[in-house]
């Protein structure tokens, strides 16, 4: 367990020092400030626009960071052979994967927390005092980035190419917002050859539209407490599946 903690802490510090991480984070903070200026155009809906654009920026930056750090996390070490320095010690390979993932996700969470604090500050300047739903919206976004980070890690180990892994992860991210449409098409399709692959894809792809609480928090009726529990369980199970498969693939790799 100590090795897991050490690897996670080491990964966290390493990512915080990366220039790419800092540049993307800075870009996110600038975009948040930009939302304040653009929102003037929305006239009486200015507050709504600051909230929506701020949350959208937070999610996009979180996603970019999660995908970029997760994809490069292990591939870079495999290429430079530095992974051998770690695995020469009595460290289980699964601990290495889990530690790297947890460190990366903690760094992404840190960036998102910073953006949330700045966003909340901007909203407070505007007179908005916030609400519990705002925190829940950020938590759902964080859960979404965890799913994407786990998928990015799995794809990077499967494809062994950072570019291909990033492209496939982004493709899955887009596809994840269309699972309802895929199910609808599958139900409408009369052909066995179309129906089952579509249904399989709809169930295998993460249902990312469910995480968009930031877009429907004002719905009446809104999601209830069991909905959040199901979402938490879904996130944990999906991330665990991707990590278990990553451990399996990494255990077979020659380093």
């Amino acid at each position: 367990m100590d090795s897991l903690k050490s690897i996670a802490a080491c990964s966290f510090k390493e990512i915080l020092r990366q220039k790419t991480y800092l540049v993307v984070l800075l870009f996110g903070l600038i975009l948040l400030g930009g939302a304040l200026i653009v929102s003037v155009l929305a006239q009486q809906e200015r507050l709504r626009m600051i909230i929506d654009l701020g949350l959208a920026t937070g999610e996009l930056i979180g996603l970019v960071l999660a995908v970029f750090t997760s994809v490069n996390l292990i591939l870079r070490e495999l290429e430079s052979r530095t992974v051998q320095l770690v695995l020469a010690h009595p460290v289980p390979r699964s601990h290495y994967i889990l530690g790297r993932f947890l460190g990366a996700w903690a760094a992404v969470a840190c960036a998102m927390a910073l953006m949330a604090a700045l966003h909340l500050g901007l909203l407070a300047l505007y007179g908005w005092r916030g609400a519990g739903v705002y925190v829940l919206a950020w938590l759902c976004m964080l859960a979404k980035t965890a799913v994407m980070a786990a998928l990015a890690l799995l794809l990077s180990l499967t494809l062994s190419s950072p570019a291909a892994a990033m492209a496939f992860t982004l493709f899955l991210w887009l596809l994840g917002h269309f699972t309802a449409e895929m199910q609808f098409l599958a139900e409408r399709s009369g052909s066995f050859l179309i129906k089952w692959p579509l249904l399989l894809a709809a169930f295998a792809t993460p249902d990312l539209a469910r995480f968009d609480y930031r877009d429907f928090w004002n719905a009446a009726p809104g999601p209830d407490a069991p909905w959040f529990l199901w979402l938490a369980l879904y996130t944990a199970a999906y991330v665990s599946t991707a990590l278990a498969l990553s451990c399996q693939i990494f255990s077979q790799k020659e380093v």
Partner: peptide, 13 residues
């Protein structure tokens, strides 16, 4: 969990 989520009606667009 996905089935549970679908059963507890998420507001959709």
């Amino acid at each position: 969990a996905g089935a549970g989520l679908r059963a507890s009606s998420t507001p959709r667009f």
